[in-house]
Structure formats: C-alpha cells, structure tokens
Design a protein around this nucleic acid. Structure first.
Length: 679
DNA sequence: GTAGGGTTAG
C-alpha cells in the first residue's frame, strides 16, 4: 500500500521514459518484485508501453496474464492494436471485453468503431454504435464523430446528416467528416453548404478541408461554386498560403476560367515551381498557347527551373502551333536534366509529330526503354496524322506481338491512319479484327473512321450501307464523314441526305456549318447556302476566320486571310503574283469552286491568292534561306485550291513545304503531296 | 490510458 502510494506515479513516468524492450523489462521486473504488478498499479501503462516500442506480442502476453482487468487496461490493448494497424484485433478484444462483462467507455467505443470503418464492416460498426447509445454515450462527441466518419466512408451521407443534426456539440472534426464525406461521394454542392454553415457558426476554417473542397470543385467543373468558395475565403480573411492559392489557380484553370487563374497567380506573394506549372499546364490544356509559352519563359527569367509538369505543358503548347524550334530546345533541356520515361517520351513524340517531323517522333519512340500502351498509341496516332497508314499498321502488329493489348484508342488511331492513306481493304479488315478478335465494341468514333475511309475513297454507297448496319445510333461524326466524302466526289444527291441529317442534329460548331455551306456552294445550291448563313446568324455563330502560323527563325508569325496589316504585305503579294504566273505556265488552274461566295470568277481568284496559308508560305519563302523546309500550321482544313497550288510552289521553289491543318499533315515535295490527295 | 480526420498543390 505504501509502495503503491510512493511509486505509483513514478512508475508511470518511468514507463513513459522507456525507449526499448529491455528498459521496460527492468521496470516490469521491479513491478513484479515490489508486488505492485499483482496489485494492478500501472499495468495499463505497461501494456501500452510495450506496444509503443513495437512489442505488441509482449503487450498481449502481459495483458493475458493480468489477474484483474479494468476498462483502462482493455483500452490500452485496444489502442495498442489500433496503433499497430490491426483493426480486426481491435474488434476481437472489444468482443472479449463484452463477453467478460466489462462496460466499455467512450474511448473503447470510439476506437472500435474506427476499426470497423477501417475494415469496412459497417454492420459491426452499427452494432457497436447501438451499444454505445445504450451505455449512455449517444451524445459523446468522440463516439459521434467516429460514427460520422464511418457513415461518410461508406457513402451513407443521409444517415450521417441525420446524426450530425442531432449532435448537441460539434467540433471541427465532426464538420470535417461531413464535408469530406460529401466531397468523396461527389456531392460537392452539399459539401460547400456544410462548409458555409460551419463558417456561419463561427467555427475556425480548417485548411485541409479547404484544400479538399477546392480540389473537388476543380474536378467537378462547377465554375459558380468555385468562385463562391474563393469569394468566401476572401470575405472572411481566411489566411491563404501558397498551397491554397496554387490549388485555386489549378481549380480556375480546370474550370476554364483562365482570367481568374491568372489574377490569383499574379496576386500570390510567394510562388513556387508548382504554382508556375499549374498555370502553364492550365493555359496549354485550354489552348492558350502563347500565354503558356510566355509564362514558361518568364518562370525561367525569375530563376525557377521548369520541372516535369511545366515541361509537359510547354511541349503541349509547342505542339499545338508547330513551334518545332522551341520544342527541340525543350527536348535538349529535358535530356540534360531528366530521364526520359514513358510520359515525357510520349509528350515528345506528340510534339515532334505535330511539329511536322515524323522521323524525329519515331526516333524518340525508338529510344523509350519500356514502351507502354500510351507510347504506342501516340506513335500510331502520329503516323496517322502524317498519312503513314502502313507504318501505323505495322506498329499495331508489333505491339500485339509484344503482348501489349491494343485498346479502343489504338484502333481509332489505326482506322484513322488507314483512312488518311486510303487503305480501304485494310481498314475494313482491321475493323473486323477489332470486333471479333479483340472484342472491342465499335464506338461512334470507329464507325466514323471507317465511313470516312469509304467516303474518302469515293465508296459512297458502301459507306451508306455501313451506316444502315450500325449497332448504335449514327451521330454527327458519321454523317459529317459521309457528307465530306460526298462533297469531295461531287456526289451531290447522296450528300443531300447526309446534309439533311447533319442539320437535323443541330450542331453547335461553326466548322460543320462551313462544310454544309461549302457543300451546297459546290452543288451550286445558293439558296441553301444562304439558308445556312441565316441559321448561323440566328445561332450567333461566325465562321471561324482562317489563320495560319509559321515559325521563322524561332519567331511565330500569324496570318489572317487577306492580311494587309503585315509589314511585308507588299513583298508577299508581289511574290505570290510572280509564283502565280510561273504556276500557270506549268499547268496550274485555279479551283474557284473552293470560294464559297457567289462572286465573279476574277474576284474568286484574287480571294484564293489571299488565303492565310498562302500568305504564310510566301512570307516564309521570303525570310528563309534556299532549301529550308517550311512548316505552316492552319486552324481549319487546308483549302483545295491552296493544296493544289502548294504542290506547284514546291516544284518552283524546290522546297519541302509541310502544312498542318486541323486534321492532318500534308508534306508537299516535287509537285506531290504526301496525302495522295486523300484528305 | 486515451480516443475521433485529413497533408500539402500542378
């Protein structure tokens, strides 16, 4: 008795000071010798100390030997198992405790319910919760929050809300459980509501919850909610650190609010690489190419070394406008600083291919050590946009041989590649293989490719039959493919049905209306042309102005149609007039049917000469040395007459001219185009 | 003798 009084407290401190098994063992021996062990003093501490130094088996042995075990000893064992990541043992001890008639307390319930959550054993959890209520712990905040967490983990948010509303006291853990629960099951709006309510009740905002919310908003794309949460942060002077602000930048970028992202970014007092990269990749992914590249340069001026994400963003941006010089310099930078893995390698393949160099793309592909599905798909798609159908096909065969399973994207790229090369038989054959051998259900995209393939080859009836046999409802892409085939082959009768279907589907894209208008113009149906114009006007659509860009000496130059604003416009026109004469001398005849308007022939010819791609070509010819390969990037399909003219220009100036239009690449050389006029 | 919730962000 005396010993207990003297040593009880010291014993506890002694045990707390122990750092390993040997030290605990000494104290343990002391306890046995002094008789305190059998008295029950500090035995719970002994159990928890053994567990704390990782000796859970020892703890259990001691626990099993204890003659009388009060609730604190049981809890020590329960907590030990919980900390040891053994939730099923927690439940076993809890059950044993109940069998021996020991009344659990708040922490026994709390930790046991947590264990059920970990085990996803919600039935047991409910049972323990029922017992807790019976034992008078129904209003306990610790027990309650563990139940809230259990409900939110299994998506029972309505049950969670019911309990939450009945709780007499709620702390930040309870609010957090509710908010993250709603976030995790995608009910972001309710998550925000709970968050706002928490603020109204004067609860201190928790930045971890805030981060979770912002991320959830970024993924659901609810712009209005995103702005309101941001507004809330500002109005309530919630302190924002670099992580929160970067998440806001990312959120705005993901919901397409680049202006807001930029503003948050500029107001950040401390930026790091992640902040820069977030905005760069946001710009790149939303097509704001020059913003992305300017920011990429700026970050380096400020002394930040670009990392993987910013590099991927810059590569994506470079590839969108054919900035091969910039792309190459990034490649050099990457080689000096990072290992080229599948992700970077794939981005580089894509960049080189889209910057016109299919051979560099392949060299990159060849150097990636362990090529995965995505690498193959990127290379196959690259071959496709360059019209190398056979190479795409042999790559698909190669990947099958090396046991990489092609997916729906592989076949979509393959079919598109075969289509751009006019390989009709192969297309039909591989479509069958895809369905029968690889068990891939053809989607609209695959059908559209095959129909495109047939229609491009002039097999309009076969394309029509395929549409009739489709298992899914033919959509816009399918009818557009048929329509453009009919347009190219002047199959006006078949085309009219396709045109009608296209119009029925009420597309929201001005490019498609341009196709319709072009089709009717080619058919000489000027009434329909003006009808289309009316629809476009009613819908508030404008024909996307054609523009072309060309990189000359590392600088990007953009041209609009009839772009007289350019400082070298006079020289450009002079060169085009000179070329026009030489072209006509070797057989060029302007294809005025490509001019939409119902105008005089001579005016049409002049308009053709002013197409943006021609201005860009002339400009590039004027400003580069003889023999330099040119790369022009156009935002629309290249016009049929310009296509013809560029062939002649390639003869006259003895240059390789690469034109990338919105669909694919055209390599003009010695009077021929790589697309073989399948386009 | 203690407990309930998550770690950063692209």
């Amino acid at each position: 008795m005396l010993l207990k009084r003297y040593f009880g407290k010291d014993l506890k401190n002694l045990l707390l000071a122990c750092n390993d098994r040997a030290q605990i063992f000494e104290v343990h021996a002391l306890m046995i010798l002094s008789g305190l062990f059998s008295y029950g003093t500090s035995t719970a501490q002994l159990v928890s100390s053994y567990a704390r130094v990782g000796e859970i088996e020892f703890a259990r042995k001691v626990f099993d030997k204890l003659p009388k075990r009060r609730v604190n000893v049981w809890n020590a064992m329960i907590v030990a198992y919980s900390r040891n990541d053994s939730p099923s043992e927690v439940i076993n001890v809890y059950k044993q405790m109940r069998c021996e008639g020991v009344k659990p307390d708040s922490s026994s319930f709390t930790v046991s319910i947590k264990a059920c959550t970990r085990l996803l054993d919600f039935e047991m959890g409910e049972e323990i919760w029922k017992t807790a209520v019976e034992c008078g712990y129904g209003n306990d905040i610790f027990v309650g929050s563990s139940v809230l967490n259990m409900y939110s983990k299994c998506g029972k948010m309505d049950e969670a809300m019911g309990l939450f509303e009945k709780m007499p006291r709620r702390d930040v853990v309870c609010w957090t459980a509710m908010i993250t629960g709603f976030v995790q099951c995608g009910r972001v709006r309710e998550a925000v509501d709970v968050y706002c309510q928490m603020q109204r009740e004067g609860m201190e905002g928790d930045r971890v919850v805030m981060l979770g919310l912002i991320q959830a908003l970024a993924n659901t794309g609810e712009a209005k909610l995103g702005r309101s949460v941001h507004g809330y942060l500002i109005r309530n002077d919630v302190p924002m650190d670099v992580v929160i602000q970067t998440s806001l930048v990312d959120m705005y970028a993901k919901i397409g609010e680049l202006e807001f992202a930029y503003r948050v970014f500029r107001q950040m007092p401390n930026k790091n690489v992640i902040s820069w990269s977030a905005l760069i990749s946001g710009y790149a992914q939303n097509g704001f190419v020059s913003n992305a590249l300017e920011l990429f340069a700026e970050m380096q001026r400020y002394g930040f070394q670009p990392d993987l994400v910013s590099i991927l963003g810059a590569l994506l941006a470079s590839s969108q406008v054919g900035r091969s010089r910039l792309g190459k310099s990034i490649h050099g930078y990457v080689m000096r600083r990072l290992d080229i893995d599948q992700v970077l390698g794939t981005a580089l393949i894509d960049m080189y291919a889209k910057c016109g160099s299919i051979s560099c793309a392949y060299a990159m592909f060849d150097r990636i050590p362990c090529k995965d599905l995505i690498c193959f798909n990127a290379m196959i798609a690259s071959y496709g946009i360059h019209g190398h159908g056979k190479e795409a096909l042999s790559l698909v065969i190669q990947m099958i041989e090396s046991n990489i399973k092609p997916d729906h994207a592989t076949f979509a790229s393959l079919l598109s590649a075969l289509s751009h090369s006019g390989l009709v038989k192969e297309g039909q054959y591989w479509f069958d293989i895809m369905v029968k051998e690889h068990k891939i259900q053809p989607g609209e995209k695959h059908y559209a490719c095959l129909i495109d393939l047939l229609a491009r080859a002039g097999k309009v009836e076969e394309a029509q039959n395929l549409i009739n046999s489709m298992t899914c409802e033919p959509g816009l892409a399918v009818w557009v493919a048929l329509l453009s085939g009919c347009h190219n082959y002047k199959r006006f009768l078949n085309g009219e049905l396709a045109a009608k279907k296209v119009m029925e589907l009420n597309p929201d894209n001005s490019g498609i209306y341009s196709l319709l208008a072009n089709f009717f113009a080619a058919a000489g149906k000027w009434n329909e042309v003006s009808e289309i114009r009316k629809i476009m006007k009613r819908k508030g659509m404008k024909k996307t102005p054609g523009h072309s860009v060309v990189e000359v000496n590392g600088q990007l130059h953009a041209f609009l149609m009839e772009d007289k604003s350019h400082p070298q416009y006079e020289q450009i026109v002079k060169l085009l007039e000179k070329l026009d004469k030489e072209m006509r001398a070797i057989g060029y005849v302007p294809k005025t049917e490509f001019v939409l308007h119902n105008l005089e022939e001579e005016v049409k010819v002049r308009m053709l000469c002013n197409h943006s791609e021609r201005l860009a070509i002339a400009f590039a010819l004027l400003n580069t040395g003889p023999g330099t390969k040119l790369l022009i990037t156009k935002n629309l399909r290249v016009c049929g007459d310009c296509h013809e003219a560029t062939k002649f220009i390639s003869i006259i100036v003895k240059r390789e001219i690469v034109v990338r239009d919105v669909k694919r690449f055209h390599h003009f050389k010695d009077g021929l185009c790589s697309c073989g006029d399948y386009w």
